[in-house]
């Protein structure tokens, strides 16, 4: 499945909270470019922070989408703040926790915490925080018409919702 940066939704509280996990694997090609061996420096595969922002945006975006039962087209409009304190390596699991701070006909604000499952202690350690703003684009882009169908929440998202038992949240 292309461009899905979460593997599974694991917790959901309507209109408040969603948590999703992602397992980081050395089989993912991008890790070999981030970072490859260079001169005397050995390869250092790390989960890119930009893709962790995307993972949080997908978790939080689904949470925002559930409020309108996915009738609104929810677009990431602004990364208000993003702080990362630790690296994530292949073999580790990332947990994205998104809290819905504010919801409005025009858009929404979410605050998120990113955690990483450490080995061998098997403890969740906070590694960063991401604050995001989402726009309901049909309400905002004056004069621009978008297709009727909800192209934001495509088949990929339906699969994620189905595996979490949340498909009933989608209005057909």
């Amino acid at each position: 499945m292309r461009w899905m940066w979460i593997d599974r939704i694991v917790e959901y509280e309507p209109e408040r909270f969603m948590a999703a996990i992602k397992n980081v694997s050395l089989a993912e090609e991008h890790l070999h470019d981030h970072f490859p061996a260079c001169g005397s420096d050995e390869a250092l595969p790390l989960m890119p922070a930009s893709l962790m922002i995307e993972g949080m945006a997908q978790t939080a975006g689904i949470l925002v989408g559930t409020v309108s039962r996915f009738r609104e087209k929810v677009i990431l409009a602004k990364v208000g703040a993003a702080r990362f304190e630790r690296d994530v390596f292949p073999g580790q699991t990332i947990r994205y926790e998104a809290h819905l701070e504010r919801f409005d006909p025009a858009g929404a604000l979410t605050k998120g915490v990113i955690l990483c499952l450490t080995h061998p202690a098997l403890e969740w350690q906070e590694i960063g925080q991401v604050e995001l703003m989402f726009s309901h684009i049909d309400q905002n882009m004056s004069g621009i018409k978008f297709p009727e169908e909800n192209f934001v929440f495509s088949e990929n998202f339906r699969t994620i919702l189905r595996t979490a038992g949340l498909l009933e949240l989608v209005d057909e």
Binding site: K78, R102, L109, M133, S135, N140
Partner: peptide, 14 residues
């Protein structure tokens, strides 16, 4: 930009 106005409104409310 337009999304910043929404951000400002949310922050003013808070």
């Amino acid at each position: 930009e337009s999304i910043d106005f929404l951000d400002i409104v949310f922050r003013l409310e808070k």
